[in-house]
Design a protein around this nucleic acid. Structure first.
Lengths: 217, 217
DNA sequence: GTCTATAACCTGATAGAC
DNA sequence: GTCTATCAGGTTATAGAC
């Protein structure tokens, strides 16, 4: 009787969660714990506990901690760069449209996955060689449509200089948020609003920088 | 005889290193290993080896791994925010002068300590509570002279929005450098030159953003 | 103060019952 | 497929000789 009562009070989401098989539960838990604490600081026991399952099942389904981590890492890298690369390569978009799309998509995505950048970037620091192998696909970045467009517009600007500015203005706030919140300068509940403003303002600012020729760089 | 020969061939730096006492050698090694690999991934053995001394000495001088880490962390946080806070509070500097000083000082400092930001920011992620306690000093940031100056100039701009842009453009390149180098877009040896350009350009760009009123934010 | 040896503990992985 | 119990190896910290 009480069991039935509980069942009736479960939300749809909870029912879906309950129906997930062990493999998916472990992946969910691994995603959460790895991105929150990084590879070295997470213990397989943390993941097991978070998943509500047993430690032995991790090895049964995924063989090893490192293997499970690689799966999550690949996923996360796709998430972080998948927003950028296709837009940079899209020949049907103007430079201004690329700016707008990248700023908008990144801020949308990062609002849902705020510790994605610090996770990926700090794991790359810990293991740059392993990363170098996984990036071969985007070696085509050198010939990206965006590089040509920028060269036509401002041949003296290094494409990386441009991407540093664009991505810095979009990604950095998510990395630095905890610092500003702790310092008392930024009330937690204002952050989302600032990011909404940035969706609009970053492309405007970058466009202006692009048109500013006061100093040759 | 061979010992004398070696001594004569030692550089001045090496002689200084040799004269350092055990405590300083350990601190040097800890600085290097902790910032490179993060707290969880470094083993006290790594630090001992890097210092050329024995594992037992770490505990003799510093009691525990965690205690040694706290010392390094405090140092590094000072390094990262010490460049920013005094300038923001300096009542003798105009907003433009603050911009220039911060961009210049940060890029100078980060060029010498490139993995400082990712180290500090990722450790804060791993332990936000521990960080919140250490930041009380900069709670005065809310009343910083910079905040007043910005309010007089553009009352509708949130000071954090401004700092996100400034710091993002300065700090983000150092965090993202490995990604761009691995991708083939950025030859390792061009990075320093791009950062030299940024010392000049970031203040110019930010000033322009400050003067742009096309959209109210 | 500095070292070697070892204690005490933790972590990833597996064996084997169900 | 899932669990409990346990192994094997590694890590921090300390005891004790010099």
């Amino acid at each position: 009787m009480s069991l039935i009562l509980i069942r009736n009070h479960m939300t749809k989401q909870q029912k879906i969660e309950k129906d997930k098989n062990a493999q998916e539960k472990i992946l969910d838990a691994a995603r959460k714990v790895f991105t929150q604490k990084g590879y070295a600081a997470t213990r397989t026991r943390d993941i097991a506990e978070e998943s509500g399952l047993n430690l032995a099942l991790l090895n049964y389904y995924f063989k090893s901690k490192e293997n499970l981590f690689k799966i999550i890492m690949r996923e996360k890298m796709k998430g972080l760069f998948g927003v950028l690369v296709p837009v940079l390569n899209d020949t049907s978009l103007s430079l201004e449209e690329k700016l707008q799309l990248i700023a908008y998509n990144y801020i949308e995505m990062l609002s849902k996955n705020p510790d994605l950048p610090i996770f990926v970037l700090s794991e790359i620091r810990n293991n740059p060689e392993g990363f170098a192998k996984n990036i071969q696909a985007s070696k085509s970045l050198k010939e990206a449509h965006f590089v040509q467009q920028l060269h036509e517009r401002r041949p003296e600007i290094h494409p990386v200089q441009f991407l540093f500015s664009l991505m810095g203005m979009v990604i950095f706030p998510f990395i630095a948020k905890p610092v500003f919140v702790s310092s008392g300068l930024l009330p937690e509940n204002q952050f989302a609003m600032l990011m909404e403003q940035r969706k609009v303002m970053v492309p405007v600012w970058i466009k202006i920088m692009l048109e500013t020729k006061t100093i040759n760089i």
